[in-house]
Nucleic acid binder design. Structure first.
Lengths: 202, 202, 202, 202
DNA sequence: CATGAATGAGGGTTCATTCAT
DNA sequence: CATGAATGAACCCTCATTCAT
């Protein structure tokens, strides 16, 4: 609904412009152009508003990653890694300030469940992608995949957390791909040139 | 001073037992066995208390990392990485619940300056360590070092953030060493003063 | 608005009954029959409440003086002085306790701006009145007028400040008129459009 | 005692430099170069400190006025008035900022008793002075005297209260003498040239 | 459904005062 | 007698939430 969207966007704007301290229901409602009463008709309490915002944010993010993964089915490993890292990086960098502010505010929320749901979706998408790699296979793909995602999520977050310059950010983005690929090359099963078989198994 | 220590420890206990929402000055003072007035004699405001706690936490952490780095001067690369990752991991795992709760709460604080100071210390220590490696050299050590730390910090944080099981945590810890080493092996310069042996081992 | 009036009146009552020390926002709100929150919806902080009360008080006072001055346009000097002094005195004496308590409490407030606005209004009104006197004129009316008002304001205040009895108060009120008139007779210019009569009366 | 003096002076300094809001016992003690504990050995509570300061201030003021009055015994009326007004004005103007700050702060204190004592002393001094005037006598000297002092005290206070410029202040000082003398000339007994008799009656 | 004035529990903070050293 | 750390009652103010209109 338009109202809900307006409230979500207002929440972000309040966070951006006035900071987390001024994130009051009244303030959000005002900026959304509705009354507090209306806000409370869509969200039973403040936490629900924040929870919803993060849910939506993570849904969109998961969508993007999942799409990218599907587009890479059967591609070579290096390309997959590049696509995954870059998709995630772009999604986070697009509205860097929003990303930063959301990173900082989720602390006020028990977002474990949210993160679990998000992780499940992304895990599934990336695992399926890597399983379909035309030029690589892994003994313990679940662990490798978990490690990879943990690294990507964590590293990107850390880049935002330390107030690194854009140049440093870009450099680290490139290095992140290098690192992830290096890792995958290291842990892939040694027999590699089984292209046809691996491909037909997909 | 004993009082300050008691207040810091009380802060942690309140965070652990009652959660960040119940982190009130009165509550902390009570648990520390002092009056609010006393608390305010050591910390000008609530934020300063929290800031101080984090400062101390990061100082201890940086100390541990720096010591480990110094102990590794001149060691081979693989051992350095292992030592670095394990030191950091142990420091974070020792009191896992405390780590988790601090990860979640620092977001409410503008800890940019704190992180910057912490990063500067750790950066210097690890860069000096890697520069002394007996079996490896790097073209752009600063960037490589920055990337490595960003990955370690971020990955560990993410492990805590997603409520992963101990087993998964341990697995990822091991993988983290693998990943870091894989990265360093990839970006190191091939020629080195121990040319033949090092090259053939690759 | 009714609520604002209730709060103002409650402020006065608290001052009267409990004294300036007990003038707390909670206390005022209680006595006004509203909650603290409501009080803060009309006044951004405690000082604003007090400032508003004084503003209103001075506005009413200035109104009374201004009306009296207009009613005296063209009257003889003695009558003007009598009217001015008596109007001011009555306004202050009507609710003597309120006057006393406000005199004592305004000091805690930076009411310079308030007093300036009040003075400007009263100055203008009395100066216009004296300029229209049918039987007197002044070389430097602004200074004379300023002196007169300063004396009236100050003397009345001092009567309240020293806890003089009603009888003493009444006596001083009468003397105040005498004094003001004596002053004006002394500083008026002798030549006037009613020359002979006015001059011989001196 | 030197300590008491230091504390009094520190109180004034705190009022001047930091304002009435920062007038805390700790702050005063610090500026006086002693500890709070010491302050409490000389003053049982904060109010006593403030009371003492005002008492001393009024004592000095009364001394000055009384001396001036004694020096005017037997002098002509006009000279007496001039001396009285000027003495009081000078005493207040000498450290104008201190005067202003004390005027503003006495409100926090029930200084009725203090003012009564002060008034009694000054009343006696001025009444004795006027009774000795070589060229004037009064039917109801107590009332006339009370009126005169009330006017002088009140007018001077009002000059300080309105933030009048120095020039305006000086002008009003001059006018104040004019006004007081005009008043006394008006209310003196009509038979005037009884010089010898009046003088011998003293 | 929308509104927004009213609510009041509860938080951060201050500061007069005490008392063990 | 001096010190100053400790105390804790009390204050100002905020803001999530409700409900009569």
């Amino acid at each position: 609904m338009a109202t809900v969207d307006a409230i979500f966007e207002a929440t972000i704007q309040v966070l951006l412009v006035d900071g987390p301290v001024r994130l009051t229901t009244t303030h959000v409602a005002e900026r959304a152009g509705v009354s507090v009463g209306t806000l409370y008709q869509y969200f039973p309490h403040k936490e629900a508003l924040f929870y919803g915002l993060n849910e939506r944010y993570l849904d969109v993010l998961a969508d993007k990653v999942a799409s990218a993964c599907e587009a890479q089915r059967g591609a070579p490993l290096a390309q997959m890694v590049e696509a995954l890292v870059t998709t995630y990086w772009r999604a986070k960098t697009e509205r860097a300030e929003v990303t930063r502010v959301l990173y900082r505010s989720v602390a006020e929320l028990d977002n474990t469940a949210l993160l679990a749901a998000f992780s499940r979706r992304v895990d599934a998408a990336t695992e399926a992608m890597f399983a379909s790699a035309c030029d690589a296979a892994f003994d313990d793909l679940p662990t490798v995949n978990l490690m990879l995602l943990t690294t990507i999520f964590g590293t990107v977050r850390n880049i935002f957390e330390r107030a690194l310059s854009d140049a440093e950010g870009r450099a680290l983005h490139a290095q992140l791909s290098v690192m992830c690929l290096a890792y995958l090359e290291t842990v892939r099963v040694t027999r590699r040139s089984v292209p046809a078989a691996a491909a037909s198994a997909d």
